[in-house]
Design a protein around this nucleic acid. Structure first.
Lengths: 119, 119
DNA sequence: ATCGCACCTGGAGCCGACTCCAGGTCAACC
DNA sequence: GGTTGACCTGGAGTCGGCTCCAGGTGCGAT
């Protein structure tokens, strides 16, 4: 099972090293294992979890809620129903965001056409 | 020509009074006219501009860029080409946001289906 | 006339999410 | 054996965008 150096994880996930350390510090990431020199060596699983974090973060989930999700994951399989609920609620908000953006986009297009007409 | 009290503008635009004052302070809003007692009386035009602000803000435009746009508007008609450019660039970012959200949404759906299958 | 209320000001404070820094360790290459 | 470079730590600082506060004014209703 392969491990990843900090630099590799930065490359792979797009998070900065500082952000990774920050996520570990606040408990969004489990304590990352270390080599003899005390340097982080991320597992495949860490990287996968960071992929999830990236997705949730990029869809606007606040860190506090990601922490709740992380907590559910840690508690084991009996929390899966709760995880589904959390993700479905989040999905609803993502849907709303998309609808809202699409709506606002029309206004922007109208504004642009208006400007085009007066130019 | 009708004017609006702060409370009416709050109602109409969804911004808080503090936010309206803040926007005026930083120059995103022109100095708002006052009645004899020094209280704000917003014009139709102010409210219209706030509608534009709302749209740009809700689509993720940073205040610094809204200030640039406000500045172009103040400079008069010869900046219309620049305004179109600014709005088109912003439109591109909105498009990207929607695409990104839609993409991430698939991941969330997949995650939910996965959880549904293991429950 | 006095109460409540909507409003005013300048300035401080807050929150989320990082981001940066100083000073240190270790491994490897020249 | 000296230098480079990737990494480490704890803690402070930054940034965007508000949000709150204390203390004050003026107006309409009881």
């Amino acid at each position: 099972m392969s491990v990843y150096t900090p630099a590799e994880v930065v490359e792979e996930t797009g998070f900065t090293l500082d952000t990774l350390r920050y996520y570990e510090k606040i408990g969004l990431l489990e304590p990352v294992s270390r080599n003899a020199a005390g340097q982080r060596r991320f597992t495949e699983e860490d990287v996968g979890w960071l992929g999830t974090i990236r997705c949730l973060r990029d869809t606007g989930m606040p860190i506090a809620e990601m922490l709740r999700f992380a907590d559910l994951v840690r508690q084991g399989d009996h929390t899966i129903a709760d995880r589904i609920k959390l993700l479905e609620e989040h999905d609803g908000r993502v849907r709303d965001q998309i609808a809202n953006l699409t709506e606002r986009q029309r206004y922007i297009h109208d504004k642009i056409s208006y400007y085009r007409r007066v130019v």
